[in-house]
Write a protein that binds this DNA or RNA. Structure first.
Length: 416
DNA sequence: CCCTCACTGGGAGAGTAGTT
DNA sequence: AACTACTCTCCCAGTGAGGG
């Protein structure tokens, strides 16, 4: 059976998150989305950990379900958290985010006790630790060899392993001999697999994709798709699959241009640039004269050693536009509009497996039974990539416009 | 109803101002 | 010159007030 998994998200105890990020709502929304396995996020936070202990029941295979409801109505939870390391190394300030997986609540308790001795886990769901990422990796694996660490949103400028502002040029530079313990990278919203395939160094790493959601509605905007039999599914199987790519079918991706750090630029100066333009300007903003924020495309350009994406070997990928955005565009309003939410819920409740059914699985004929012709047209056009993109930069989200017939001419000029 | 915009804050380092 | 003590910066994106 196909399992869709989203490992990276945050609870209501993290900064700037929705207060609906609790277990009941997470379960409910995961069902609506069509997500089968959801990370808990934030397991280092004392209050969230308490909730996990109280409200989850172990299945004995490293996965958990909600207590007090029928087995069928609960998705699977897997224990995850994100940790932010801020420290100085080789003369530069490093800010690295790591995604951590744990095999059970007992191990999480041990890890939390270990970290609590020297660090404050209370301040945020995503704790900020003044520790070298390598040392943290050592501690995590020392607490249990079954723990698993993946550098998060690997390319974003400010908080990432390869980030232009805070990162390194290789995993060895960051983790030293411990780099052997890293098997995967999270690509983040601003990069997709083909961009990463341009750097042969990354061939040995599995690319995973998660939502980093701060609100239930953003769950699964990126995700991972596995193929397991119902009997074999377990924490260990999932980790093994990430390590070996066996049973790892494909990832679900944002269009990278839609991410906040695709191109170079300055938000305040309202200027965005392609890597070659930035290089011509020697990295200096022509408006304010200060260094530009170097984006994901530029960083990959600098490190890449080939043009052609790799064929085969890796899991495939599918690019999606969130259904809410498609609906918003069919009505010509923002995706936060009330009408959009109503239509969205109405539509996905008619599907068998939620939003992913509509975006990935259902054929046009079937879609027409549950949605208006125009929304169906939007879904089909999104699948075919009949879109125009204006790329994000320096913290500004990019925009994807679906090219409906009448809007084609208007947006043609803006196509990147 | 819809959209825009200011506001929120932990933690670490960098930068600056002030004191001795 | 060397120290302390501030302030400022960045991240995150949801939230709710206020205006059209």
């Amino acid at each position: 059976m196909r399992y869709i998994a989203d490992f990276h998200l945050h609870s209501k105890y993290s900064r700037a998150t929705s207060r609906e990020m609790d277990l009941r709502h997470l379960n409910q929304w995961a069902k609506l989305k069509g997500i089968d396995i959801l990370g808990t996020g934030d397991f280092t936070h004392p209050l969230w950990f308490k909730e996990l202990e109280e409200k989850l029941t172990p299945l004995g295979n490293g996965l958990y379900q909600l207590k007090d409801i029928s087995k069928k109505s609960s998705i699977y939870f897997i224990l995850t958290t994100e940790i932010s390391c801020i420290y100085k190394k080789s003369g530069k300030t490093r800010r690295i985010h790591l995604l951590v997986f744990a095999p059970n609540l007992e191990v999480v308790r041990k890890l939390n006790q270990r970290l609590e001795k020297n660090y404050n886990l209370h301040s945020d769901g995503r704790p900020i630790l003044g520790i070298d990422a390598k040392e943290l990796l050592k501690i995590i694996l020392d607490v249990s060899p079954e723990n698993f660490v993946v550098p998060a949103h690997a390319w974003t400028p400010w908080y990432a392993i390869f980030g232009s502002k805070s990162g390194f040029d290789s995993l060895e530079e960051c983790f030293g001999e411990m780099a052997l313990e890293i098997y995967a990278l999270e690509t983040g919203l601003s990069s997709d697999p083909p961009m990463n395939w341009r750097w042969s160094y990354l061939d040995k790493y599995t690319l995973i994709s998660n939502s980093d959601a701060h609100s239930p509605e953003n769950l699964g905007r990126e995700a991972n798709v596995f193929e397991f039999s119902d009997k074999e599914i377990s924490y260990q199987k999932i980790i093994e699959s990430i390590k070996t790519r066996k049973n790892f079918v494909f990832t679900i991706e944002f269009f990278p241009e839609e991410g906040k750090y695709y191109l170079d630029g300055h938000r305040d100066c309202q200027i965005s640039l392609l890597p070659k333009e930035t290089k011509k300007l020697k990295g200096i903003c022509p408006v304010c004269g200060r260094p530009l924020t170097i984006g994901v495309l530029h960083r990959i350009d600098d490190l890449a050693d080939r043009e052609a994406p790799r064929q085969g070997g890796a899991p495939g990928f599918k690019s999606i536009i969130p259904l809410k955005e498609i609906i918003a565009q069919t009505y010509g309003v923002k995706k936060t509009a009330k009408k959009v939410k109503e239509k969205y819920l109405e539509l996905i409740k008619k599907t068998e497996k939620g939003e992913f059914s509509a975006l990935l699985d259902l054929e046009e004929k079937e879609l027409l039974k549950i949605a208006s012709p125009r929304i169906v047209q939007g879904i089909i056009k999104a699948r075919k990539g009949e879109i125009a993109k204006s790329a994000g930069y320096d913290g500004v989200y990019g925009e994807i416009k679906i090219l409906f017939e009448e809007s084609k001419r208007v947006f043609q000029e803006k196509i990147f």
